[in-house]
Structures are given as structure tokens and as C-alpha cells.
């Protein structure tokens, strides 16, 4: 068994070079079960939150593994599993261009007008 964990397909930077549809990972990690991203809803009415990732042979097994790995201490009532292959992510190399420009635009925050006293819960 190979323990060469290749996170190329995780989306972060491989996408920039080869495009999101690249599935070459299946060839590089033939012996490994695919990686799945797990989202858990902690209670009714809340959203599913990303809690981590795990390996599983198929979607049914991913959900069962997630049940055993991530909800053993009553953390959740619902699980989503998404094969990591299908997560598309922004490129960390472009972080400057993508996020820094928002840094000096305080006027985008709704803090520049006075609320009437009658409006209490804003």
C-alpha cells in the first residue's frame, strides 16, 4: 500500500495548471480509496459545516465512516459527503489579487449611517 498522499486533487493549486476536470489522481492513487469532504449539521435549522475529510470506497461508505469518525460524540444529526475531486477552490497564489483589494474599502460595511433609536435590534 502506498502512503504517498497526494493532495493535488484537493483543488487548491492543481486546478490552476490542469483545470478542475483533471482526474489523473485516480491513476496516481490507484491503491487508495478516494478522499471525501465531510459536512455535518449539528442541529435542525443550522447549516452543514465542513468538519474534515476521510477516505472511503463509495458514497455510502463515506457517510458511514463520517458517522463513525465525526459524530461519535453527538456532534450531528445530518451528514453530507462530497468527493474531494469535485471541490473547486480558489488559487492561494492569487490571494493578493482576490482578497486584498477589499481591505481598504471600509465603506462596504454598513456602518456609515445613524440608526433611529426606535430600531433596537440591528
Amino acid at each position: 500500500m502506498s502512503f504517498n498522499i497526494n493532495k493535488f486533487y484537493y483543488g487548491d493549486y492543481g486546478e490552476a495548471k490542469t483545470g478542475a476536470a483533471d482526474i489523473s489522481v485516480k491513476a496516481t492513487a490507484k491503491e487508495e480509496w478516494p478522499l471525501w469532504e465531510i459536512f455535518v449539521r449539528s442541529k435542525q435549522g443550522l447549516d452543514h459545516k465542513h468538519v474534515g475529510s476521510l477516505h472511503a470506497a463509495d458514497a455510502a461508505m463515506a457517510i458511514e465512516n463520517a458517522r463513525d469518525v465525526y459524530t461519535r460524540r453527538m456532534e450531528g444529526i445530518s451528514i453530507w459527503a462530497v468527493e474531494s475531486n469535485y471541490i473547486h477552490a480558489s488559487n492561494p497564489d492569487e490571494a493578493d489579487a482576490l482578497y486584498d483589494p477589499a481591505n481598504d474599502k471600509v465603506y462596504r460595511h454598513p456602518t456609515f449611517y445613524d440608526l433611529p433609536d426606535e430600531v433596537k435590534y440591528m
Binding site: L54, H55, D68, V69
Partner: peptide, 11 residues
């Protein structure tokens, strides 16, 4: 055989 199944059978 794999971490996830180790946890499953221990549960």
C-alpha cells in the same frame, strides 16, 4: 485496515 474502519470496528 484503514483509519476510518479501525474507528468503526472499535465503536
Amino acid at each position: 485496515p484503514i483509519l476510518e474502519q479501525d474507528i468503526a470496528i472499535t465503536n
